[in-house]
Simulated assay, not measured.
Amino acid sequence: MARYTGPKSKIARKFREPIFGPDKALERKNYPPGMHGVSKRRGKQSEYAVQLQEKQKAKYTYGVLERQFANLFDKAASKEGITGENLLKFLEARLDNAVYRLGIAPTRAGARQLVGHKHITVNGQVVNIPSYSVRPGDIIAVRERSKTLEAVTNSVAGRKQNKYSWLEWDANELTGKFLNYPNRDEIPENIKEQLIVELYSK
C-alpha cells in the first residue's frame, strides 16, 4: 500500500497547518523549515508555485499520492457540478477518511492502518483498501473481533458529538452510515480547491 512516509512535522511547518493532526513541533516553530528559520526573507511566489503548493497540501492532508490524486481529479472533472468541489467530495468519500471522520481512528494515518489490517467492514464485507469510495447509504463498521482493539476503544472514548452532517454514528454498535456527499461549506479543511483546478487546467 503506497503512502507518504517522510517527515510529517516538516510538512506541517511548510504549510503552517497541523495537516497530520496535533503537532507540538508546529506549535513551537510556526514558521517554514530551513536553515535560515524565521529570519529568512522569502521572495514572492509565482502563481504556479501557489497552485502547486495548494495541490500538495490537499494530497498530504488526505494521504493521497500523485497518480491517485490525478485520477480523482479526472473523475471530478467529468462529473456534473463544480470540479473543485467534486474533488473534495470524492476525497471525503474515501474509506480511510470516513473512518477518521467517524472517530474510529484519531488520524487519517491511523484510519488507513485500521482499514489495511482488515478491521473495517463496509455493508458487512471486510474492505482493506483505504482508497475505496463509499457511497451514500453505505454502512461502515468496526469488525466484530476488532471492537476491543485498544486503538479503537481509545479513539471512540475520546470522540465528541457527531460533527459531520453527512455521517451518522451508532456508538453502541460502532457503526456509521455515509448519508450523502458533503457540501463544500460542510468540509472543514482549509483548501483552496479552485487553485488546484487552475493548476490542472494549464
Rank of each mutant, 00 (worst) to 15 (best):
I139L: 11
V99L: 01
G176E: 09
L174A: 07
L91M: 08
D138Y: 10
I129P: 02
I139D: 07
I104Q: 06
G158E: 07
K160D: 04
K147N: 01
P130I: 06
R184C: 00
T107R: 06
I140K: 12
V152C: 03
K147G: 01
K177Y: 12
V122T: 11
L179I: 12
T148L: 06
T121D: 11
A93I: 06
G158Q: 14
A109K: 12
Y100P: 04
V134I: 14
D138Q: 02
W169M: 15
Q161A: 13
N172D: 13
T175A: 14
G158M: 09
P106E: 12
R101F: 00
P136L: 10
V122F: 04
P182D: 10
N123R: 05
I120S: 09
V142H: 11
V156D: 08
S165E: 14
R145L: 13
V127Q: 08
E186C: 01
H117D: 08
G176K: 05
Q125W: 10
N180L: 09
A93N: 08
A151R: 15
Y181G: 06
A141L: 04
I120N: 02
D185H: 15
N123Y: 05
I187H: 00
N97M: 03
W166I: 00
N128H: 13
A151T: 14
K160N: 04
N123Q: 05
G116P: 02
V126S: 10
A109H: 09
N154C: 07
G103D: 07
G103P: 03
L174H: 07
L102W: 07
V127F: 11
P130S: 15
Q125F: 15
V152Y: 04
T153H: 01
Y100L: 00
Y132H: 13
T153D: 05
T153E: 14
N172R: 15
I187L: 02
F90W: 04
L149S: 12
N190C: 02
K89A: 11
D185L: 05
Q113G: 12
N190M: 05
L95V: 13
E189Q: 08
G116I: 04
G124Q: 10
D138T: 08
S165A: 14
L102I: 03
G116H: 04
Y164C: 01
P188W: 00
V127N: 12
E144Y: 03
S133Y: 10
S155T: 07
L179W: 08
E189A: 00
N128G: 02
W169Y: 14
F90V: 03
T107L: 03
A111S: 15
G176A: 15
G110S: 14
V127P: 09
S146T: 04
K163P: 03
I129F: 11
V152E: 01
V142N: 06
L114G: 05
A111G: 13
S133M: 13
A109C: 00
S146W: 04
P106D: 01
A141D: 06
